[in-house]
Amino acid sequence: MTCERYLNSIQESVDGTIGSIRRAELEMHLDECADCRALRDDLQRIHDAAASLPALEAPDRAWLQIAGRLRQEGRIREIAPAPGPRPNYVAWLAAAAAVILAVVTAMMLLVPQKAAPVQRAQTAPPAAGTGNTGGGNAPASQSVEAAQTEVDAAQQQFEKAIENLEKVAKANVEALDPGTSATIDKNLGIIDQAIADSRAATRAEPTNVAARETLFEALRHKVTLLQDTISLINEMRKGNNAAAAQLVNKS
């Protein structure tokens, strides 16, 4: 049984505030009492472990929500368009999505047997423009409707690419261990939430360039994660554990 009369001294010794006379008295007692020694050691270990607790990582969605609220409150300065003809950002995104579609097709050929067939029409590169034709330059000013149309068109291209990647990943998911699969699902859930939030922000303000950028950034994240998942499946199938480990570490 620990001696209650020494309890305060033990705690103050852990706090580092005990005076020298009481410390000497406590040390004499600890030399003779194993229970009190064990208590002092345990409380010291708890104190030390608490003092060295590392910083936790804030979830990704927290930043997306903060950024969304700053935009809603109008606290973010929108980036002014560069003088002169502005490159058609949305059309560029559509072209990027087309490249992704081509990559998807190539990757599906790499994933054997169970890959879901892809419609030829979906793999054909879509038109580079999305409403603005010729030269890739947008008009100097854009109506809300035109902006929304452009965003919708570029989104559709991404969604096609994502749909195809998801089909391939889902059809071959058994190649992954349940832990990896659960982590990927969790990350996809976070990205989906980010896509939903930024899509809502874009719908509320179709001409808001920053909101668009956030949406397309989230869509790009999803494409990248799905591409990595399929690469991982391929490496697992080939028995290439080193390459698979590299992909997991990258994620």
């Binding site: 607790l53 590392p54 910083a55 936790l56 804030a58 930043w63 950024a67 700053l70 973010i76 300065r77």
Partner: peptide, 18 residues
């Protein structure tokens, strides 16, 4: 500038979240 605030967030969010 949103990018600047994101940088500030990345530097300090871990400690404040903890």
């Amino acid at each position: 500038e949103l990018g600047a605030f994101e940088e500030l967030y990345r530097q300090h969010s871990g400690r404040l979240f903890s």
